[in-house]
Amino acid sequence: MTRIDAVLTDFFRSELPQPFPAAPGLAAPAAVRRDPGRRARLTLAASVAALAGACWLLSNGGGGPAGAARPGTVADVFQNSTARHPGATDKGKAKAAATPDPMHGFAPGALPLP
């Protein structure tokens, strides 16, 4: 090979992309590699879900009858709050019974027009 051949070979080979790119459209699937942290995140999510489920079970009495909260649990505190206190409910009923009927004395039917 003469020197001009060597020069031209060097020149043209330096122009040729190295490595030559893959077929168009191949880059996208290659770029979508599996996320290395995906498994760890899934494990973490499952752990959090299990923990939340356990807390929920415990707060609901853990196997007792539905709606019946064990004393001292969070649900028990809510169920025995003022709004649902038996005494408060009785007071409300007594007040409703003492209130006179606002329609007392009126004849049933349409009101006479002036």
Binding site: M1, T2, R3, A6, V7, L8, T9, D10
Partner: peptide, 23 residues
């Protein structure tokens, strides 16, 4: 084409080819 390029480029004595290119 080779001859024309050789004439235009002049002497190439100082050129050191890339690795692996025989001369």
């Amino acid at each position: 084409a080779r001859q024309r390029l050789a004439d235009k480029l002049g002497p190439l004595d100082g050129y050191s080819p890339a690795n692996g290119t025989p001369t």
